[in-house]
Structure formats: structure tokens, C-alpha cells
Simulated scan of single mutants.
Amino acid sequence: MDDEEIPLTRSEFELLAALMQSGRRVRTKADLALLLRGESYVTSHFVSEADKRGIEVHMGNLRKKIGESSATPRWIETVRGVGYRLTAADD
């Protein structure tokens, strides 16, 4: 399955790309919502709770597609109350 192609929506792809670019740095739900709108790093735009919930839904769908568990994350770690980041590399 490691070399299997997984179809992602544009939003899922952009979220995954953002996390990969950020490495272990936490990306907030608000930051990710702005990114999906094309307004990344703009602090003057409002991000609603519905926008943040949308990020949670997209992230849940992405996790299902890549076989990820939020309880025991292999690739994407939830930082409770903040956002998401990549998990630490196995040494």
C-alpha cells in the first residue's frame, strides 16, 4: 500500500502540502482555513468556528484516506486546541 496512489481533494492536498512544508511547526486551524481560501498569513481576515470545523472535517477525511488514526498518529499529530503538525520522525 505504500506505493499506492491515493486520490485527494484539492483541500486535502493543500492541507497535506502545508503540513509537509511546516514540518514540526504547528499550523493553527485558522491559519489552515486562511490558506484554503488563498489568504495565508493575512491576520485581518475573520475565521469563524465553522471555518475551523471545516478544517477538522477535511483533516479527518485526509486521515481516513492515508490510513491514519488520530488516537495513534503515524504522520499527522493533533495539537489539542491549536491545530496540526507532522509527527516526529522515528529514530
Rank of each mutant, 00 (worst) to 15 (best):
I66G: 06
G83I: 01
N61F: 07
D31Y: 09
T87Y: 03
V79H: 06
A50P: 00
D2K: 06
E77W: 04
E5W: 12
E49V: 09
G38T: 06
L15G: 06
T87C: 15
M20A: 14
M59F: 02
L34D: 04
P7L: 11
H45P: 00
M20K: 11
L35A: 10
E14S: 07
R10H: 11
R53L: 13
G83R: 00
A89M: 09
V26A: 13
D2M: 07
H45M: 10
D90M: 07
V57N: 11
L16M: 14
E14T: 06
P7Q: 11
S44A: 13
T72G: 03
E12M: 01
Y84L: 02
R10E: 15
D31V: 02
R27E: 10
E4S: 11
A18V: 05
K52N: 08
R10P: 01
T72Y: 14
E5F: 14
K52Y: 04
L15M: 14
A30R: 00
L19S: 04
A88T: 10
D3N: 12
D91L: 08
N61S: 14
M1L: 10
A71S: 13
F13Y: 15
D91A: 13
L86C: 07
K64S: 14
T43N: 12
R24G: 04
F13C: 05
L32V: 03
I55C: 05
T9P: 03
S22Y: 08
R37P: 00
D91T: 07
A50N: 11
D51T: 02
F13I: 00
S69F: 02
N61G: 15
T78S: 13
D2S: 09
R27H: 07
L86F: 08
E68K: 01
V26T: 15
R74S: 14
L15S: 03
R74N: 11
R37D: 12
V82A: 13
D90Y: 06
R80P: 02
E5T: 12
A71G: 07
W75A: 12
G23C: 03
E12K: 00
A88L: 12
R63Y: 02
Y41G: 06
R80H: 11
E49D: 14
A88H: 07
E39Q: 13
E77A: 10
R24F: 07
A30W: 01
P73F: 10
G38F: 05
S40Y: 07
G83P: 01
G54V: 01
G83S: 02
E5D: 08
E5S: 12
K29S: 05
M1T: 11
